[in-house]
Amino acid sequence: MTQPPGNDCDGGLLDRYLDGDLDAAEKARMAAHLEHCRTCRRQADAMVAFSQDFHDRIEQATDAVDFMALEKQVLTKALRQHRSRGGFSTFRASLKYAIPAAVTACILIFFAYPTFVAKSSPAPSAIINSFTGSVSSVMIFETPETRQTILWYNEDPDVESDQNAV
């Protein structure tokens, strides 16, 4: 039998046909093509035989494997490795989080301490000037918050010094 005119062989379409990925119209067209094209029919038969052989071999191999024993071996090995990682390596792994946490805490304390610690009442940082007269004295203090504070107070006149002056 010869191939009908205008119906070229298409390997991609044949693959999709064997995979079952064609719509109804394409599937009917490919089935008609396979009836008339010996080359495509042989290729399709070879691909189906290979696929079936491959599937059978995989099934035989999986039947020979005891998956329960394999799972037990894998879990046992994983637990041994996990237990062997204890000691210094576990300590070292914990430092990965402890050191950044300690540094962050120190930075927060450094910057928050002046803000949240109860401040003592400000004391004058310096006496800038002092004037003393016969009846009163004036002192100018510099403080951190008010910058300048002027104290003016009256003194009791020293009676003895006034009498000595006479």
Results as ranks from 00 to 15, higher is better:
M1R: 06
T2L: 10
P4R: 11
N7G: 13
N7S: 11
L13H: 07
D15K: 14
G20F: 12
G20R: 12
D23S: 03
D23G: 02
A24R: 01
K27C: 04
K27E: 11
A28D: 03
A32N: 05
H33P: 04
E35H: 09
C37G: 06
C37D: 05
T39N: 12
R41F: 10
R42N: 11
A44M: 13
A44G: 13
M47P: 15
A49G: 15
Q52M: 14
D53G: 15
F54N: 05
I58K: 06
I58E: 10
A61E: 12
D66A: 12
M68I: 14
M68Q: 11
L70N: 03
K72W: 05
K72P: 10
R80M: 12
Q81A: 03
R85E: 14
G86Y: 01
G86P: 04
R92K: 11
R92L: 14
A93M: 03
I99W: 15
P100C: 04
A101S: 02
A102K: 08
V103F: 01
C106W: 06
C106D: 11
I107W: 08
F111G: 06
T115C: 15
A118E: 13
S120H: 14
P122D: 12
A123E: 09
S125T: 02
I128P: 04
N129T: 06
S134M: 02
F141H: 08
T143W: 05
E145F: 14
R147K: 04
Q148W: 12
I150D: 06
L151R: 11
W152P: 13
N154H: 01
D158I: 11
S161T: 04
S161N: 07
A165I: 03
V166R: 15
